[in-house]
């Protein structure tokens, strides 16, 4: 892929009056988080965050509450100033922008969706969606047209003139998404957008959102505390713990090779059937001594669910092929272990 859209390089955030002193103490003496708290009275919000997000990617940041994920994402539009480190968005160093330039980048390049919607209660749905455009002083006729189009994208036609409080939670969040899309930004920042919604609505919105982003090709940073949501939506997932990114990878990588005990505990309850692909659990063809005559075949990109469909009707292993050539096979014991998540 080309130049990353968002690039974070060793970003630190320390909260407190003496954050700079604490930062230099960390750099010189390498003191730990509790020491920073007791020595300087400062809280480490984010530590050494480094990652790239490429164009059109949905990058999920997953972590429990207090893990610093919301803080991290607010660095990207500089709602929070980093204590240390560099943030580049579309090749521009965000930290070096003047306040006017920053406002422009926020208005043109980034749309943000919040957990608690944060709609303006005294404005109609249409005027809420149009607000980012109004900030940019776009004339009313144009604003309204764009806003109606954005509301169409989230399936809210007919609600333009209502007030936010007249809408349900799920609908309000769709207004929030439409507002973020209205200025056609390159980047979407989603701060736990679906967390406050009930599960059914959440699932619907996740699917709708995924389709929308795929269609519009928006680079998205998506914060969630729900691993299922991260797996369903994200191309890649970063797992945060205590302000630190513990692991970055695709859903399959994280589920199959958790970086540490913390991540392992997280992924334990996740269903592997749709996640794990055949090639990651197959064994060499030579290791099987019996006959492979009439054994079922599957592509190496098939997921466990499909392998199970093939394996139930036969005693033989499933042969895994890559462009027609056998590259490996999966025996029943291997398959069962794979479902468990690669336990040996």
């Amino acid at each position: 892929m080309d130049e990353p859209v968002v690039k974070l390089d060793n970003v630190w955030k320390i909260f407190g009056d003496r954050s700079q002193e604490a930062m230099s103490a960390i750099k010189e003496r390498g003191i730990t988080k509790p020491e920073v708290l007791s020595e300087f009275g400062c809280v480490v919000g984010v530590q050494k965050a480094t990652f790239d997000v490429s164009r059109g990617e949905i990058f999920c940041i997953m972590g429990l509450s207090g893990s610093g994920k919301s803080t991290l994402v607010r660095h990207i539009n500089r709602l929070i100033e980093p204590t240390e480190g560099k943030i580049e968005v579309l090749g521009r160093d965000i930290g070096s922008l003047s306040s006017n330039e920053l406002r422009e980048v926020r208005a043109l390049q980034m749309g943000m969706v919040f957990q608690h919607m944060a709609l303006l209660p005294h404005r109609s749905v249409r005027d809420n969606v149009a607000y980012p455009l109004e900030i940019r002083k776009i004339p009313k006729s144009r604003r309204w047209a764009i806003s109606d189009h954005a509301l169409g994208l989230v399936d809210l036609v007919g609600y333009e003139d209502r007030l936010p409080r007249e809408l349900s939670g799920g609908m309000q969040q769709r207004v929030g998404i439409a507002r973020a899309l209205a200025s056609d930004p390159a980047i979407l920042l989603m701060d736990e957008p679906f967390s406050a919604l009930d599960p059914l609505i959440r699932m619907q919105l996740q699917d709708q959102f995924k389709a929308l982003v795929a269609q519009l090709q928006k680079t998205t940073l998506f914060i969630t505390h729900d691993l299922d949501e991260a797996i369903r939506i994200g191309h890649r997932i970063a797992i945060m713990k205590d302000g630190e990114i513990v692991q970055i990878g695709t859903a399959e990588e994280i589920v199959m090779n958790p970086a540490d005990e913390y991540v392992r505990e997280f992924v334990q309850g996740i269903s592997k059937l749709k996640l794990v692909k055949a090639h990651s659990i197959m064994e060499p063809v030579e290791s099987y001594k019996g006959s492979l005559e009439g054994a079922p075949e599957a592509d190496h990109k098939a997921d466990l669910d499909q392998i199970i469909d093939l394996a139930v009707n036969t005693e033989q292993p499933v042969v895994i092929t890559d462009s027609g050539k056998p590259v490996g096979l999966i025996t029943k014991p291997r398959l069962l272990r794979g479902i468990q998540g690669g336990k040996e």
Binding site: M110, F114, A118, R179
Partner: peptide, 11 residues
């Protein structure tokens, strides 16, 4: 949160 949202849109 509402103030933050307005800031995030460049107000």
């Amino acid at each position: 949160t509402i103030i933050e949202a307005a800031e995030a849109f460049g107000a």
